[in-house]
Design a protein around this nucleic acid. Structure first.
Lengths: 342, 342
DNA sequence: GTGAAAGCGCTAACAA
DNA sequence: TTGTTAGCGCTTTCAC
C-alpha cells in the first residue's frame, strides 16, 4: 500500500498539516522541520494521492478531447497538437472517439465519463445546427469545427469560406476555368463541405465563371477511398475539367491517384488543390498544393480558452468565436504560375 | 453546485445509503422506494461524483497510453485501436506523448501525472534494453514495441524477425535478388530496426544471397522525409538494386516517391515492400505491398491484459510476452508473381 | 510555526 | 429493506 500523509507525519514526528505545508510549498515552515519531513517523504517514497486532492479541490487537471476518429490524419494531427498544448499548460488529456456519430456525440456530452475531467474540447461531426441546444452543458466546453455555430460555448475554428475562396482563386489565377470539386454534401449550408463549397462559388462568381453542377462530386465521408470513387465517377461522366478542388487533403489525394491512373498528368492536364495541409500532403507525388488552415493555432487556442474557462468557472463572459488564419501552401500539384498544357 | 447523494436523499426522504443502493443497482430495494429515489435524481439532475467514487474504490476507470507522437500514423492508428478497445471494456484513455525522448519516457514512468489512471500502456522509443529497470513501477504496466525485452512487465508486440523475413522472402520469391533496405539503425540489435534487419538477413542467407552493406540505407527517424533522403543517397551512390524493403511504411512511401521521380518504375524496375500496413498504404500510387503486423490485436490485447492486471492487482503472475500474428498484404508495389522488366 | 479537526462525496460494514 | 457511520487521503480553517 502506498504511503499517505499520515505515514509521513508519523515517521517525521509532526502532524499531517506540517507535511501538507511542506508538500504545497507553504513558506512558513522551519527549515529543520522541512528537512525532516522531506527525509521521511523520501524514505517512504511518498507521492500525494491525486484523487484525494481532486476530491478536495474539485479539479482533476485533466481535460477531455472528443473527436471522430484518431485514425483520420486530420484529427490525429489535431489531437497531437492539443495534447502538446495541454502539457505545456500542465494539463493532461483524455481522448474520446465518437466516430462522427450524432447519437454518440450527444451521449458523450451528457456522459459521466467526462466527470473525470475539468472540461471538454469537442469536435462534432454528426451533430448539426439544430442540435445546438445540446451544447448547453454544465461544464466548461470549447467547440471546434463547422457543424454548429452561435452555440452557448466558445468556438474555435477556421475561416472556411475565405480559405476555400482563396484556394479557388489560386487555381483561377493559374489559368484554370473548369474547376471540379470533390466532397460536396447534398444540400449542406454550414459544415465544412457547405462552407467550402460556398467559398468556391464566391470565387467563381467573382471571376465571372459560371457554376457547373456537373463537375461537382458528392461524397459524404471524407476518406481517401471516397475521393477516389468520386473522381472515377467524374471521369466516367466524361465531363471536362482542368482543375480539382478536393474539399480536404485526403479527398484530393484519392482523386489525384485516380487521375494519374487514368493517364491525366498533374498538374499539366489537371491541377489539384486540397484543404488541411496534412503532413502527408508534402510527400505525395506530386506534392499537394493545399490550404493550411492553422490547426496548430486552433489546438493551442482551444486549450488556453478552455483552461481560462475552467479557471474562471464562475464568471459568465459571453461565448467567443475565435478564427484561425489560413494560407495557401503552394506545391507541385497546383503551382502558382500557369502551366501550358502539352 | 452539483447535487450530491445527500440532496437526493433529502428530497426523496430516504437515507443516502438507499440512494447509493439505487445508483449501484443493489437488488434489495423496494420498487416504490427505488422509484421515489429515481424521481429525485431526475429532478435534481444528480450524477455521481466520480472523483469521490474513485477515492473510495482506489480506481479511476482510466488508463494511460504513452506513445511517441500521435502525428505519426502508426501511433495514431494504434491509439485509435487502444481507445476503442478500452471503451468496449468501459475504460477511458489518457494519452501522453513522449516524442520518443528517453528522458521524457523515464520521467513519465515515475510521474504523478499517471496517478489519475489505474495503469499504463507504454510504447517506448528512446529507452533501450539497459533501461529495463525503469519498467519496475508500482502500478500495472503493459509495454509495447521492440525497445525492451524481458522486463518486469507484460509485453505485447509483433514478430518482427519472422515478419521481416517473410517480407524479404516475398521479394525473393518474385525473383528479386538485389534488395535494398531503408531505415536501418547503426549497430542496433534489438529495436524494430535491428530485428527487422535481422529477419531480412536471415531470408537472404536462406536463399543463398550475399548480404551487401552498400544497399542498406541508414536513417534514425522513420518519417517519410527520411525515407526519401535515404533513397536519394542510395541512388546517388549508383548502386544497383531491384527491390526495396522499407522498414516501415512511411519510409517505403518516401522512398517510392523518390524512385518514381528518378524515373524508376515501381514495381517493374524496383519492387517496394513496407511494414505496418498503414491505412495510407492502400492508397499510394502504386498501392504498397506491406507487412500487416496485427496492430489491432496488439491494441486489444494490451488493453485486456492491462485491465486484468488492474483487476487482479494483488496477484503476482509472472510477466508475459504476447506476440501478434502477421501477414503479408500483397498490393501493387510488389506483386506476388515475377514481373518481367520491359 | 505547528496541530486538531472538519469535510470534499462516496461506499460498505454493521445495525436496526 | 433501510439507516448509521466510519473512513478513502487530502486541504484548510482555526486555534494554540
Amino acid at each position: 500500500m502506498a504511503a499517505t500523509l499520515h505515514d509521513v507525519a508519523r515517521l517525521a514526528g509532526v502532524s499531517i498539516k506540517t507535511v501538507s505545508n511542506v508538500i504545497n510549498d507553504y513558506p512558513h515552515v522551519r527549515p529543520e522541520t522541512r528537512e525532516r519531513v522531506e527525509r521521511a517523504i523520501g524514505e517512504l517514497g511518498y507521492t500525494p494521492n491525486l484523487t484525494a486532492r481532486n476530491l478536495r479541490s474539485g479539479r482533476t487537471g485533466a481535460i477531455a478531447l472528443a473527436i471522430p476518429d484518431l485514425s483520420l490524419s486530420y484529427f490525429a494531427e489535431l489531437a497531437a497538437a492539443v495534447i502538446a498544448a495541454a502539457e505545456d499548460a500542465g494539463a493532461v488529456v483524455l481522448v474520446e472517439q465518437t466516430d462522427g456519430d450524432r447519437d454518440r456525440e450527444i451521449e458523450l456530452l451528457k456522459s459521466q465519463r467526462l466527470k473525470l475531467t475539468d472540461g471538454l474540447i469537442f469536435s462534432p461531426l454528426g451533430m448539426s445546427q439544430e442540435d445546438v441546444a445540446f451544447l448547453d452543458v454544465p461544464y466548461p466546453l470549447v467547440v471546434l469545427g463547422e457543424r454548429i455555430f452561435d452555440g452557448p460555448a466558445d468556438h474555435v475554428t477556421m475561416r472556411n469560406i475565405e480559405a476555400a475562396r482563396a484556394a479557388t482563386e489560386h487555381l483561377i489565377a493559374a489559368g484554370r476555368r473548369r474547376i471540379a470539386v470533390i466532397g460536396a454534401h447534398e444540400g449542406e449550408v454550414i459544415g465544412s463541405a457547405g462552407l467550402r463549397l460556398r467559398g468556391y462559388r464566391e470565387a467563381l462568381a467573382a471571376a465571372g465563371i459560371p457554376f457547373d453542377a456537373d463537375i461537382v462530386g458528392f461524397t459524404t465521408l471524407w476518406h481517401r477511398a471516397n475521393g477516389a470513387t468520386a473522381m472515377r465517377e467524374l471521369l466516367a461522366r466524361g465531363v471536362e475539367f482542368d482543375a480539382v478542388f478536393g474539399l480536404n487533403d485526403t479527398l484530393a489525394l484519392g482523386a489525384m491517384r485516380v487521375l494519374q491512373e487514368a493517364g491525366r498528368r498533374v498538374p499539366d492536364d489537371v491541377a489539384v488543390i486540397g484543404f488541411d495541409d496534412l503532413d502527408e500532403a508534402r510527400y505525395s507525388i506530386p506534392s499537394l498544393t493545399t490550404v493550411h488552415p492553422g490547426q496548430d493555432w486552433i489546438a493551442r487556442t482551444a486549450v488556453t480558452t478552455l483552461l481560462e474557462r475552467i479557471a474562471g468557472a464562475g464568471e459568465a463572459t459571453p461565448p467567443r468565436l475565435l478564427l484561425a488564419d489560413y494560407r495557401i501552401e503552394v506545391r507541385e500539384s497546383a503551382p502558382a504560375v500557369e502551366i501550358s498544357a502539352a
